Amino acid sequence: MHFRHASDIWRDFPALSAGILHAEGIHRDVSVDAHVAAFEAAAKARLAASSEAEFPEIQAWRRAFSRLGLKPTQYRSASEALLRRFRNDGSLPRIHPVIDLCNAASLAFAIPIAVFDLSKVADHLQVRYASGSEIYTTFSGETEHPEQHEVIFADEEGRAHARRWTNRQSGYSAVGSETTAVLIVAEALHPGGEVGVRRLVEQLETAIRAIWSVDPRSAILNGSFPRFDF
């Protein structure tokens, strides 16, 4: 299996940096409370100084969504949506330990993170422009087809595992109680984004190793090194 961004994504968004983590041996019977608390404390400190809309990480995704023809206040990156909810509610709902950990890391770094159950992905996962024929399954089980030229995460069978790039993942490959292997993808578009992505991946890798006693593999992707094999 492999993960990559299509060449025209790198061409159109040359500032893109992506951090990838592959981990096996994931299960629910762990506590991530200490790591989540540390990430949330960092997010609270930053939100105390300014709103998420002022963060350069969020502004970069808003510009990208506008460029793709999306209203950035209607379709928000996953990190912006999480930060807004966290600022308003003071906490995030608990879903699954690996999701809770990645959501908290996304808050701390203001960088969107996607987590996929690899048992639901066919052969590879590619970030590319949609043809419009791909199949996307919502969390309620409904079927949608992405718009033409929409940025999606797609596999070999033409299944879209995320729509509008970092806006919304699919319920089909969402992490659940039976998940054992995950692919974690963090993406940034702001100036200096690779530094933040690298720090995020390092901290997540350390946390996953400590929590699940597994040895994840990771990589930082850019236009010169666009593919991760696992």
Results as ranks from 00 to 15, higher is better:
215 D>S: 15
26 I>L: 00
134 E>H: 09
120 K>G: 01
2 H>P: 04
90 G>F: 09
108 A>M: 07
69 G>S: 07
91 S>V: 05
97 P>W: 01
59 Q>H: 09
164 R>F: 05
7 S>E: 12
211 I>D: 00
177 S>K: 11
204 L>S: 00
171 G>V: 09
201 V>E: 00
105 A>S: 14
134 E>P: 10
117 D>I: 00
35 H>D: 13
1 M>T: 13
37 A>G: 06
196 G>F: 04
228 F>R: 07
214 V>D: 03
156 E>Y: 12
157 E>L: 10
146 P>R: 05
107 L>H: 09
64 A>V: 13
230 F>S: 10
50 S>T: 08
81 A>P: 07
101 L>K: 09
211 I>R: 00
152 I>Y: 01
8 D>C: 13
150 E>T: 08
225 F>I: 14
87 R>A: 15
16 L>S: 13
12 D>Y: 07
7 S>W: 04
189 L>I: 06
47 L>N: 08
23 A>D: 04
64 A>I: 11
149 H>V: 09
52 E>C: 15
93 P>L: 03
223 G>A: 13
196 G>W: 02
143 T>A: 03
77 S>F: 03
10 W>E: 09
207 A>F: 02
183 L>F: 06
17 S>C: 11
162 A>C: 05
56 P>L: 03
127 V>I: 06
174 A>D: 08
3 F>Y: 08
40 E>K: 07
51 S>N: 09
193 G>A: 02
36 V>F: 07
200 L>A: 04
74 Q>L: 15
185 V>P: 00
82 L>M: 07
34 A>R: 14
125 L>K: 06
18 A>Q: 12
88 N>W: 07
148 Q>D: 11
49 A>C: 13
64 A>Q: 10
92 L>C: 08
77 S>A: 09
16 L>W: 08
76 R>A: 10
55 F>H: 14
228 F>T: 06
47 L>T: 10
186 A>E: 01
16 L>C: 09
152 I>A: 02
87 R>S: 14
107 L>Q: 10
144 E>L: 15
168 R>M: 08
227 R>Q: 12
115 V>Y: 00
42 A>Q: 14
74 Q>E: 15
226 P>H: 02
211 I>P: 01
100 D>I: 03
40 E>N: 06
209 R>H: 08
227 R>D: 11
18 A>D: 07
158 G>D: 02
21 L>F: 02
161 H>M: 04
163 R>Y: 02
101 L>R: 07
16 L>M: 14
115 V>P: 01
183 L>Y: 03
177 S>V: 10
3 F>L: 03
230 F>V: 12
66 S>C: 10
193 G>D: 02
75 Y>D: 08
172 Y>D: 05
184 I>T: 00
